[in-house]
Design a protein around this nucleic acid. Structure first.
Length: 509
RNA sequence: GACCCUAUCGUCCAGCGGUUAGGACACCGCCCUUUCACGGCGGUAACCGGGGUUCGAAUCCCCGUAGGGUCGCCA
């Protein structure tokens, strides 16, 4: 049996785990002191391509005894958020143990297989900052890949499956019926030793009782999922199978198959599922079910990644905003919960805001310009210094980037559209006062926030009104809306010409 | 129908035989403040039900109930 030779021992990773456990508490103490700085590291790390986290890292020296985990998605055209978390747990475990993270594409279903669909997966993983040590380099099934256990597309592994079916057939462990090949499944309950769920004894269901055997190769010669999954895991030397709990019941089949091939099955870790906010199953149509929802709706990948790993897992000390490096150091299988989690969009938004606030300015500019462009706001028409100054007044004020066009879009739109509230606020009396302020501003030699503030307060004083009486009409005139960045700073960025012009426009309405 | 998993504030997590059941998001007050946020302070809010075991149960066991998953020539 070539199977036993191909299979690698599974204990290798544990020495490393102990080391990590030993160093983690110390590191976390350091990090709690300085929350800001480590956060910056996260965004940086998530931004960088795979190489930053992998190839330079001395702990990543290939080790035949180490952990080998895989993410094996089917290219369905979208990357489910639950799938992304499964990938994340595998990736974190690999990085935590110094093991190998493998990406394998289960493209056996030709009907819904396309390069676009594969790209959705590759891009999704890259967006989150997850790099794979072995797997495809492009979406082309026949294209280049890295790793010596390929091909990494199931569509390219047909001979392996045929050979394995033959092996089972020749030993009487499988048989042909109606042109299909069926595996002789044990009738005894199967013990599944799960690292998350514990020991599970899976008995046969009533239907299985009637006929426990199952098809491993269809009459058209194509192998079925349970079979290819096991064969690939075996031949790729997978040591730990970390996957959704929806596969737990089927694991008895996989264990039986491994035994038929004469090898110990890998260690299993079935992780809980992600449900909708109302507890229902998250299906393709639900908002936020696809990773693309987050890439397109103003989320920072580092925040999504952080939030995702807190669904079903948490560090012992209750920290929630956790730098990626710390996540890798702390992550481990035994701490994974056994019950499903509901996805809380509000909390993700909060966390996204935390990351947006703490990230380096350049990173914020990059994300912002991209978001504005998507909203039809072209920042390229403005000097870079102006764009940066404008965005500086917005940084720290948003939870998700998609709030930006409404929040700071006025910097790049002329004339500004006054909303209903703004128009209502510009009463004849308010206009009169605004006119006074406009004239005061027209006479300013240096249009700085400090001068603007002083001039406004002076004007208010001479009018005998509170500052707010002038502040609000001024804000409406300049931005068209009741809320936004700091008024004086926003006006400084806008500059004298724009501010006066906008005040004139508001007075003319 | 059978099999498997699960069950602490509305939500995400702490808890692992003895706690005033803790934190975070959200929510509600107050403070800060030119708006909106941030931040600070305070508050509302939970052990699914019933039996055991034990001096003592959110923690262990059993039964119910509820939710989720699985029983394909889908993946």
């Amino acid at each position: 049996m070539t199977g036993s030779a191909a299979f690698t021992p599974q204990e290798g990773g544990h020495g490393r785990e102990l080391q990590w456990l030993g160093t983690a508490p110390c590191a976390s103490r350091l990090l709690r002191r300085e929350r800001r700085a480590p956060l910056a590291l996260v965004s940086h790390a998530a931004l960088c391509s795979a190489d930053d986290l992998s190839d330079d890292d001395p702990t990543r020296t290939p080790n035949p005894m180490s952990v080998r985990v895989r993410f094996a998605p089917s290219p369905t055209g979208y990357l489910h958020i639950g799938g992304a978390r499964t990938a994340l747990f595998n990736w974190l475990y690999a990085r935590h143990t110094g093991g190998t993270f493998i990406l394998r594409v289960e493209d056996t279903d030709a009907a819904r297989n396309s390069q676009e669909a594969v790209n959705v997966i590759l891009d999704g993983l890259r967006w989150l900052g997850m790099d794979w040590d072995e797997g495809p380099l492009t979406a082309d099934a026949t294209g280049p890949s890295k790793g010596d256990r390929g091909p990494y597309f199931q569509s390219q592994r047909k001979e392996n499956y045929a050979r394995r079916v033959e092996a089972l057939l020749s030993r009487g462990l499988a048989y042909e019926k109606d042109g299909a090949v069926r595996f002789r499944m044990t009738r005894e309950p199967v013990l599944i030793r799960d690292l998350v769920v514990g020991d599970v004894t899976r008995a046969l269901t009533d239907r299985e009782e009637a006929d426990p055997d199952f098809v491993i190769m269809r009459s058209d010669g194509s192998p079925v999922f349970h079979f290819v999954n096991v064969v690939d895991d075996l031949e790729m030397g997978i040591t730990h199978v970390i996957r959704g709990e929806d596969h737990l019941s089927n694991t008895s089949k996989h264990v039986a198959l491994f035994q038929a091939f004469g090898v110990e099955p890998p260690k299993y870790a079935h992780i809980p599922l992600i449900l909708n906010a109302d507890g229902s199953k998250m299906s393709k149509r639900d908002d936020g079910a696809a990773l693309a929802y987050y890439t397109e709706n103003g989320y920072a990948p580092e925040a999504v990644l952080n939030y995702l790993c807190l669904l079903g897992w948490s560090p012992k000390d209750g920290r929630e905003v956790i730098p990626l490096k710390q996540l890798i150091a702390d992550f481990d299988l035994p701490q994974i919960l056994r019950h499903n989690a509901r996805f809380d969009h509000e909390k993700l938004k909060w966390m996204n805001g935390e990351y947006l606030r703490a990230m380096p300015a350049d990173r914020f500019y990059e994300l912002s310009v991209h978001t504005l462009a998507r909203a039809g706001v072209d920042t390229n028409r403005f000097p870079t210094a102006y764009v940066k100054a404008a965005l500086d007044t917005c940084m720290g004020k948003l939870r998700i980037l998609t709030e930006l066009p409404a929040y700071g879009g006025f910097y790049f739109t002329d004339p500004v559209a006054l909303d209903a509230e703004a128009k209502a606020a510009l009463t004849p009396e308010a206009r009169e006062r605004l006119k006074k302020l406009r004239d005061a501003y027209a006479g300013l030699a240096e249009f700085s926030a400090a001068n603007l503030e002083a001039a406004l307060k002076e004007t208010a004083k001479s009018l005998g009104v509170k500052n707010g009486v002038l502040v609000h009409p001024a804000r409406f005139a300049c931005t068209g809306r009741p809320s936004g960045p700091s008024l004086y700073h926003l006006m400084e960025v806008l500059g004298q010409d724009r501010v006066l012009a906008r005040m004139d426009a508001a007075l003319a309405v």
